[in-house]
Write a protein that binds this DNA or RNA. Sequence first.
DNA 1: AAAGATTTGTCCGTATGTATG
DNA 2: ACATACATACGGACAAATCTT
Lengths: 244, 244
Amino acid sequence: MPKKAIERKNGVALWRQIADRIRMAITSGDYRDTGMLPPETALAETFGVNRHTVRVAIAFLADEGLLRAEQGKGTLIQRRKRLTLPISRRTRFSQGLGDQAQEFEVLAVSKGTGPANAEIAQALGIAEGSTCVLLRTLSLADGMPVSLSDHHFPAERFSDMAEAFEATGSITRAFARLGLADYVRISTEISARHADADESVLLKLSPGSIVLEAVAVNADLDAKPVQHSRTRFSADRVSLKMET
Amino acid sequence: MPKKAIERKNGVALWRQIADRIRMAITSGDYRDTGMLPPETALAETFGVNRHTVRVAIAFLADEGLLRAEQGKGTLIQRRKRLTLPISRRTRFSQGLGDQAQEFEVLAVSKGTGPANAEIAQALGIAEGSTCVLLRTLSLADGMPVSLSDHHFPAERFSDMAEAFEATGSITRAFARLGLADYVRISTEISARHADADESVLLKLSPGSIVLEAVAVNADLDAKPVQHSRTRFSADRVSLKMET
DNA sequence: AAAGATTTGTCCGTATGTATG
DNA sequence: ACATACATACGGACAAATCTT
């Protein structure tokens, strides 16, 4: 039974819908045994479309780097797994994801300072308009972008946060360098939506992709908030797990 | 000024990209002051497309129930707010959402029994293939579908779960009736994806909509799992919040 | 109350993109 | 590569409903 009939007239081309379905099937491990896609004719049959349409979808995914079609052999799957990020009071971002990939890195995309808006000021327990250190980071697992984060730190307490992060490559180590040895996650709010333009570019998403957005607040052991972050995960590549 | 130029040839129709952008603008509160969309001509100008194209996008969102266009007046925004479901060790579903709407109800869509697959058997700590009570529920806030859940309960212990739910209208009360006075959430895994056919129909989603999927396990106070559920939330209508 | 401006609704035609066989 | 059918996007013109002056 097909999960969902491919439909016309929803503003999404058939080949694009099929590409999305194949991508989803791969990330949920559907072709694990062979490591390759079924033949184009079989896929065309499955989705109830012409083979040409399937070929456009495959070409699109090959361009993304997810597939590699080889004449005579078939269509090989290049990447498969979805990472799982544990979330708990003791959440440490790079620890949680880092051990699920060969290579894991967090880059500072931009840094600066700016005033806290109402939402962030409330979360951090500071006055609206107070200066914050801003840090935008991009994490990559085996070279593939996984998450994009916008962090806010109260500037009064952590004025050198951006530099400390660049020196250490980790928020946890940057906090330690600034004299905060330990901290805990006090809240995480999760939603999902379509990626916007910035996210599409930085996370290398195709248009219409979904992001999981996690807005988190960390606090020191006296329950004083030290960090507000808004992290967008590529929903195709990550799921979030809470042990409570 | 638009964040990013609308692009053609990505397999996504212009009107669809514009509909997605308008939907996102609304849910992030962009037109809160007037409660209406700018005129079609202004939107066309903003997005750099013909007015007809904007009209198709608006018709699409109107069909979703997000907008209502009225001749001579303008285009009214029908709904904007997102419900927030708290998740913690003490999560009680209808309690969490129920107080954010005037009226909240949970319906049993279907019930039955069936064997546990590998994933569910492991989560519930029972043998693969053991019989489970299956229950599919649909929750509505003010008449609008919010979530669709597939629950599994070990049949050995909770053979009358489905009936108990129908009699009480709540999982918590059904457990209580079957002798389980208290239980706790032990894990929740969250991901996001496009809705499939069943979900689209039951949650009244338009094709291409996003669902948040939360796979949760509840256990009694002896840490023995009592329930596995897979809940899909309409991402446009719900966000999940963890206090840790 | 009347006239004009604004805004959505409908019709025409034409060009390009998408999907099939 | 070709031919065919339908969806998408554009442009212009005008009607219908509503608001403003």
